[in-house]
């Protein structure tokens, strides 16, 4: 799901730290963002905005972190509003609802592990390339 590939140039220590922080930002936001899934995206989005004029390596990893957060946001938002509709609306807890919660939990854990892996390796100056989000970032983020 995530692999280390060769980047066009060798990033310096400062760039590696910045790129690694983009992943850490989404990890830290997980703690505050658990009840409100939008917080993860906002935190990563602000970090990307503040680094959009940064070097290619930093911009690329900020964008990959942001895209992966958009995916998580969509999954979690659906679960969040489904839960609200059960608490305040007419919906009931059903097998489908519980299955959805388990599914998004599994995907969240997967994304969490990938993010930690990316944060650690990017800090070492390695270029971590996520499955699907990597090629997508290549299309969006140009040198």
């Amino acid at each position: 799901m995530a692999e280390v590939v060769v980047f066009p140039y060798r990033p310096d220590d400062y760039e590696s730290e910045k790129a690694s922080n983009s992943y850490l930002m989404s990890l830290i936001a997980v703690i505050a963002g658990l009840p409100l899934p939008i917080i993860n995206l906002l935190a990563t989005g602000f970090f990307w905005l503040s680094n959009r004029k940064g070097t290619f390596f930093v911009r690329w990893h900020c964008m990959q972190a942001l895209l992966s957060q958009v995916f998580v946001l969509m999954m979690n938002s659906a679960g969040f509003y489904w839960t609200l509709s059960i608490i305040f609306g007419d919906n009931e807890v059903s097998n489908t609802y519980i299955a959805y919660l388990i599914t998004i939990f599994i995907f969240n854990v997967g994304e969490f592990i990938m993010t930690i892996y990316a944060a650690v390796n990017t800090r070492k100056g390695q270029h971590v390339y996520f499955w699907f989000f990597g090629p997508l970032t290549d299309q969006i983020c140009k040198p």
């Binding site: 807890v93 097998n95 489908t96 519980i98 299955a99 388990i102 599914t103 599994i106 995907f107």
Partner: peptide, 17 residues
Amino acid sequence: SFFGLWFLLSQIEYIGE
């Protein structure tokens, strides 16, 4: 994978019926 996993998991009876 997402919808497949969701579908499979929803075959398990957790509560209700």
